[in-house]
Protein backbone atom coordinates (compact mmCIF):
# COMPACT_ATOMS: atom_id res chain seq x y z
CA UNK A 1 0.00 0.00 0.00
CA UNK A 2 2.79 2.33 0.99
CA UNK A 3 4.77 1.52 -2.13
CA UNK A 4 1.73 2.28 -4.20
CA UNK A 5 1.42 5.71 -2.61
CA UNK A 6 5.11 6.37 -3.20
CA UNK A 7 4.69 5.51 -6.85
CA UNK A 8 1.73 7.82 -6.97
CA UNK A 9 3.74 10.69 -5.50
CA UNK A 10 6.50 9.98 -7.99
CA UNK A 11 4.02 10.08 -10.85
CA UNK A 12 2.65 13.38 -9.60
CA UNK A 13 6.15 14.82 -9.35
CA UNK A 14 6.97 13.61 -12.84
CA UNK A 15 3.77 15.14 -14.12
CA UNK A 16 4.46 18.53 -12.59
CA UNK A 17 8.05 18.44 -13.87
CA UNK A 18 6.69 17.67 -17.30
CA UNK A 19 4.21 20.52 -17.05
CA UNK A 20 7.05 22.85 -16.10
CA UNK A 21 9.19 21.74 -19.05
CA UNK A 22 6.31 22.14 -21.48
CA UNK A 23 5.64 25.59 -20.07
CA UNK A 24 9.28 26.56 -20.52
CA UNK A 25 9.27 25.21 -24.08
CA UNK A 26 6.14 27.17 -24.98
CA UNK A 27 7.68 30.28 -23.44
CA UNK A 28 10.87 29.84 -25.49
CA UNK A 29 8.91 29.29 -28.68
CA UNK A 30 6.86 32.42 -28.08
CA UNK A 31 10.12 34.28 -27.41
CA UNK A 32 11.43 33.03 -30.75
CA UNK A 33 8.29 34.37 -32.40
CA UNK A 34 8.71 37.75 -30.69
CA UNK A 35 12.37 37.96 -31.66
CA UNK A 36 11.36 37.23 -35.24
CA UNK A 37 8.71 39.92 -35.04
CA UNK A 38 11.18 42.51 -33.78
CA UNK A 39 14.43 41.46 -35.46
CA UNK A 40 12.90 40.35 -38.71
CA UNK A 41 15.93 40.89 -40.97
CA UNK A 42 18.32 38.90 -38.85
CA UNK A 43 15.86 36.03 -38.34
CA UNK A 44 15.20 35.86 -42.06
CA UNK A 45 18.93 35.42 -42.59
CA UNK A 46 18.85 32.54 -40.10
CA UNK A 47 15.92 31.12 -42.03
CA UNK A 48 17.81 31.29 -45.33
CA UNK A 49 20.73 29.48 -43.72
CA UNK A 50 18.43 26.73 -42.41
CA UNK A 51 16.87 26.49 -45.84
CA UNK A 52 20.20 26.02 -47.59
CA UNK A 53 20.97 23.11 -45.28
CA UNK A 54 17.58 21.41 -45.45
CA UNK A 55 16.77 21.98 -49.09
CA UNK A 56 18.76 19.04 -50.52
CA UNK A 57 16.80 16.75 -48.18
CA UNK A 58 13.51 18.26 -49.32
CA UNK A 59 14.53 17.79 -52.93
CA UNK A 60 15.45 14.19 -52.22
CA UNK A 61 12.17 13.57 -50.42
CA UNK A 62 10.25 15.05 -53.32
CA UNK A 63 11.89 12.82 -55.90
CA UNK A 64 9.32 10.01 -55.73
CA UNK A 65 6.39 12.37 -56.03
CA UNK A 66 7.97 14.25 -58.89
CA UNK A 67 8.74 10.95 -60.57
CA UNK A 68 5.10 9.88 -60.27
CA UNK A 69 3.85 13.12 -61.77
CA UNK A 70 6.35 12.81 -64.59
CA UNK A 71 5.20 9.29 -65.32
CA UNK A 72 1.57 10.37 -65.45
CA UNK A 73 2.51 13.26 -67.74
CA UNK A 74 4.47 10.98 -70.03
CA UNK A 75 1.58 8.54 -70.20
CA UNK A 76 -0.87 11.31 -70.98
CA UNK A 77 1.42 12.68 -73.70
CA UNK A 78 2.04 9.23 -75.12
CA UNK A 79 -1.60 8.77 -76.01
CA UNK A 80 -1.81 11.98 -77.94
CA UNK A 81 1.58 12.20 -79.61
CA UNK A 82 0.22 12.91 -83.08
CA UNK A 83 -2.16 15.57 -81.86
CA UNK A 84 0.56 17.18 -79.75
CA UNK A 85 2.96 17.09 -82.68
CA UNK A 86 0.68 19.04 -84.97
CA UNK A 87 -0.03 21.48 -82.16
CA UNK A 88 3.67 22.07 -81.70
CA UNK A 89 4.25 22.47 -85.42
CA UNK A 90 1.61 25.16 -85.56
CA UNK A 91 3.19 26.80 -82.56
CA UNK A 92 6.61 26.71 -84.26
CA UNK A 93 5.14 28.33 -87.35
CA UNK A 94 3.61 31.06 -85.29
CA UNK A 95 6.78 31.65 -83.33
CA UNK A 96 8.85 31.74 -86.51
CA UNK A 97 6.61 34.48 -87.80
CA UNK A 98 7.10 36.43 -84.59
CA UNK A 99 10.83 35.89 -84.64
CA UNK A 100 11.08 37.40 -88.09
CA UNK A 101 8.83 40.20 -87.02
CA UNK A 102 11.00 40.82 -83.95
CA UNK A 103 14.14 40.92 -86.06
CA UNK A 104 12.56 43.37 -88.45
CA UNK A 105 11.37 45.59 -85.60
CA UNK A 106 14.72 45.44 -83.88
CA UNK A 107 16.43 46.56 -87.05
CA UNK A 108 13.95 49.35 -87.44
CA UNK A 109 14.37 50.28 -83.79
CA UNK A 110 18.11 50.49 -84.01
CA UNK A 111 17.85 52.65 -87.13
CA UNK A 112 15.46 54.99 -85.37
CA UNK A 113 17.68 55.03 -82.32
CA UNK A 114 20.59 55.96 -84.51
CA UNK A 115 18.57 58.78 -85.97
CA UNK A 116 17.65 60.07 -82.51
CA UNK A 117 21.07 59.37 -81.07
CA UNK A 118 19.60 57.98 -77.81
CA UNK A 119 21.45 56.01 -75.21
CA UNK A 120 19.92 52.73 -74.09
CA UNK A 121 20.09 51.36 -70.58
CA UNK A 122 21.56 48.01 -71.48
CA UNK A 123 21.75 46.74 -67.97
CA UNK A 124 19.10 44.07 -67.99
CA UNK A 125 19.93 40.40 -67.97
CA UNK A 126 18.46 37.37 -66.35
CA UNK A 127 19.34 34.39 -64.22
CA UNK A 128 17.42 31.18 -64.93
CA UNK A 129 16.41 28.86 -62.14
CA UNK A 130 14.31 25.80 -61.45
CA UNK A 131 11.40 25.82 -59.03
CA UNK A 132 12.27 23.44 -56.20
CA UNK A 133 9.37 23.69 -53.84
CA UNK A 134 6.02 25.28 -53.66
CA UNK A 135 5.39 26.74 -50.24
CA UNK A 136 1.74 27.55 -50.27
CA UNK A 137 -0.80 27.81 -47.56
CA UNK A 138 -3.89 29.91 -47.26
CA UNK A 139 -1.66 32.51 -45.66
CA UNK A 140 1.11 32.80 -48.22
CA UNK A 141 2.05 31.89 -51.73
CA UNK A 142 5.75 31.56 -52.40
CA UNK A 143 8.02 29.25 -54.36
CA UNK A 144 11.58 28.25 -53.76
CA UNK A 145 14.11 28.37 -56.59
CA UNK A 146 17.57 26.90 -56.84
CA UNK A 147 19.52 30.11 -57.39
CA UNK A 148 20.78 32.35 -54.64
CA UNK A 149 23.29 35.06 -53.91
CA UNK A 150 26.03 32.76 -55.22
CA UNK A 151 24.36 32.98 -58.63
CA UNK A 152 23.89 36.70 -58.33
CA UNK A 153 20.29 36.85 -57.11
CA UNK A 154 19.44 39.63 -54.68
CA UNK A 155 16.38 40.61 -52.68
CA UNK A 156 13.62 42.47 -54.45
CA UNK A 157 14.44 41.53 -58.03
CA UNK A 158 11.54 40.77 -60.35
CA UNK A 159 10.94 37.21 -61.51
CA UNK A 160 9.29 36.20 -64.76
CA UNK A 161 8.33 32.83 -66.14
CA UNK A 162 5.58 30.86 -67.88
CA UNK A 163 4.59 33.84 -69.99
CA UNK A 164 4.59 36.80 -67.67
CA UNK A 165 5.54 38.39 -64.41
CA UNK A 166 5.58 35.88 -61.56
CA UNK A 167 6.63 37.94 -58.56
CA UNK A 168 9.76 39.12 -56.89
CA UNK A 169 12.62 37.74 -54.81
CA UNK A 170 11.54 37.82 -51.19
CA UNK A 171 14.71 36.53 -49.60
CA UNK A 172 17.85 35.26 -51.23
CA UNK A 173 19.92 32.61 -49.50
CA UNK A 174 23.30 31.41 -50.68
CA UNK A 175 22.00 28.65 -52.96
CA UNK A 176 18.25 29.16 -52.94
CA UNK A 177 15.81 32.00 -52.80
CA UNK A 178 12.18 32.45 -52.04
CA UNK A 179 9.91 34.12 -54.56
CA UNK A 180 6.85 36.06 -53.46
CA UNK A 181 4.15 35.30 -56.03
CA UNK A 182 1.76 37.96 -57.34
CA UNK A 183 -1.15 36.20 -55.65
CA UNK A 184 0.37 36.43 -52.17
CA UNK A 185 -1.70 38.67 -49.90
CA UNK A 186 1.32 40.88 -49.24
CA UNK A 187 2.27 41.39 -52.91
CA UNK A 188 1.72 44.86 -54.42
CA UNK A 189 2.92 45.74 -57.91
CA UNK A 190 2.46 49.11 -59.68
CA UNK A 191 0.95 48.56 -63.13
CA UNK A 192 -0.61 50.40 -66.04
CA UNK A 193 -3.08 49.52 -68.73
CA UNK A 194 -1.28 49.31 -72.06
CA UNK A 195 -3.62 51.31 -74.26
CA UNK A 196 -4.85 54.01 -71.91
CA UNK A 197 -1.83 54.38 -69.64
CA UNK A 198 -4.16 54.32 -66.59
CA UNK A 199 -2.11 53.43 -63.52
CA UNK A 200 -3.04 51.13 -60.68
CA UNK A 201 -1.75 48.55 -58.24
CA UNK A 202 -2.07 44.78 -58.51
CA UNK A 203 -2.75 43.51 -55.01
CA UNK A 204 -2.65 39.80 -54.21
CA UNK A 205 -5.39 38.43 -51.99
CA UNK A 206 -4.61 34.73 -52.00
CA UNK A 207 -6.83 33.88 -54.94
CA UNK A 208 -5.52 33.08 -58.41
CA UNK A 209 -6.80 36.40 -59.70
CA UNK A 210 -5.25 39.31 -57.81
CA UNK A 211 -7.17 42.55 -57.41
CA UNK A 212 -6.56 45.61 -59.56
CA UNK A 213 -6.76 48.52 -57.17
CA UNK A 214 -6.90 52.31 -57.56
CA UNK A 215 -8.40 52.11 -61.03
CA UNK A 216 -11.79 53.72 -61.55
CA UNK A 217 -14.26 51.34 -63.15
CA UNK A 218 -14.83 53.62 -66.16
CA UNK A 219 -11.15 53.77 -66.98
CA UNK A 220 -10.72 50.08 -67.63
CA UNK A 221 -12.54 47.42 -69.63
CA UNK A 222 -12.44 43.68 -69.11
CA UNK A 223 -9.93 42.34 -71.61
CA UNK A 224 -7.52 45.28 -71.32
CA UNK A 225 -3.95 44.15 -71.03
CA UNK A 226 -1.90 45.25 -68.06
CA UNK A 227 1.89 45.64 -67.78
CA UNK A 228 4.19 46.86 -65.03
CA UNK A 229 4.48 50.63 -64.97
CA UNK A 230 7.93 50.83 -63.45
CA UNK A 231 6.67 53.25 -60.79
CA UNK A 232 8.51 52.89 -57.53
CA UNK A 233 11.59 51.46 -59.18
CA UNK A 234 11.26 47.83 -58.02
CA UNK A 235 9.95 46.44 -61.28
CA UNK A 236 11.17 47.45 -64.71
CA UNK A 237 8.66 48.88 -67.15
CA UNK A 238 6.48 46.93 -69.55
CA UNK A 239 6.62 43.41 -68.16
CA UNK A 240 3.49 41.51 -69.08
CA UNK A 241 1.26 41.02 -66.03
CA UNK A 242 -2.15 39.95 -67.23
CA UNK A 243 -5.59 40.81 -68.50
CA UNK A 244 -8.46 42.52 -66.70
CA UNK A 245 -11.45 40.36 -65.79
CA UNK A 246 -14.38 41.01 -63.54
CA UNK A 247 -14.34 38.65 -60.57
CA UNK A 248 -17.34 36.91 -59.07
CA UNK A 249 -17.37 39.65 -56.43
CA UNK A 250 -17.79 42.29 -59.19
CA UNK A 251 -14.36 43.75 -58.51
CA UNK A 252 -11.68 44.24 -61.12
CA UNK A 253 -9.18 41.42 -61.10
CA UNK A 254 -6.36 40.21 -63.32
CA UNK A 255 -6.07 36.95 -65.15
CA UNK A 256 -2.33 36.58 -64.83
CA UNK A 257 -0.29 35.99 -67.97
CA UNK A 258 2.01 33.65 -66.04
CA UNK A 259 0.52 30.30 -65.10
CA UNK A 260 1.40 30.20 -61.41
CA UNK A 261 0.08 26.66 -60.99
CA UNK A 262 2.57 25.01 -63.29
CA UNK A 263 5.74 26.92 -62.62
CA UNK A 264 8.81 24.87 -63.45
CA UNK A 265 11.41 27.36 -64.62
CA UNK A 266 11.67 31.05 -63.89
CA UNK A 267 14.12 33.83 -64.70
CA UNK A 268 15.21 36.41 -62.21
CA UNK A 269 15.58 39.73 -64.00
CA UNK A 270 18.58 41.62 -62.98
CA UNK A 271 18.52 45.30 -63.50
CA UNK A 272 20.86 47.97 -62.31
CA UNK A 273 18.57 50.60 -60.89
CA UNK A 274 18.42 53.91 -62.68
CA UNK A 275 19.44 56.82 -60.56
CA UNK A 276 17.38 59.94 -60.95
CA UNK A 277 18.93 62.42 -63.31
CA UNK A 278 20.53 65.26 -61.40
CA UNK A 279 21.76 67.26 -64.34
CA UNK A 280 20.07 67.94 -67.63
CA UNK A 281 23.13 66.72 -69.49
CA UNK A 282 22.46 63.21 -68.08
CA UNK A 283 19.19 63.02 -69.97
CA UNK A 284 20.50 63.30 -73.48
CA UNK A 285 23.88 62.00 -74.32
CA UNK A 286 25.25 64.04 -77.14
CA UNK A 287 28.14 62.39 -78.84
CA UNK A 288 28.37 58.99 -77.12
CA UNK A 289 27.82 56.14 -79.59
CA UNK A 290 24.55 54.23 -79.11
CA UNK A 291 24.86 51.08 -77.03
CA UNK A 292 23.86 47.84 -78.66
CA UNK A 293 20.81 46.39 -77.03
CA UNK A 294 21.85 42.77 -77.29
Amino acid sequence: MRRYRDGDAEATAARSLRRLLVGVAIFLLVCLFLVWRIENQRMERVRSAVMDVVLPAVEFGNKPVQYLSQVSNTLRNHFRVAERNSELEQEVDRLRFWRNEARRLELQNSRLRNLLNTQLVASEFSISATVLADINSQFQHTVLINAGTENGVANGWPVIGNGGLVGRVLSAGAKSSRILLLRDPSSRVPVKIIDSDVRGIVAGDGSFRPLLEFVIAGDAQPGDRVVTSGDGGVFPKDLEVGEIVVGSDQRMRLRLAADLLNLEFVSVLREIPLSEPTDVSDLIVGDAPPVESN
Binding site: C31, L32, F33, W36, M51, V54, I135, S137
Partner: peptide, 8 residues
Amino acid sequence: FLAAQAPG
Protein backbone atom coordinates in the same frame (compact mmCIF):
# COMPACT_ATOMS: atom_id res chain seq x y z
CA PHE B 1 11.13 27.71 -40.86
CA LEU B 2 10.80 26.22 -44.32
CA ALA B 3 7.33 27.53 -44.92
CA ALA B 4 8.19 31.16 -44.18
CA GLN B 5 5.67 31.43 -41.42
CA ALA B 6 6.31 33.35 -38.24
CA PRO B 7 8.61 30.79 -36.59
CA GLY B 8 7.74 29.44 -33.17
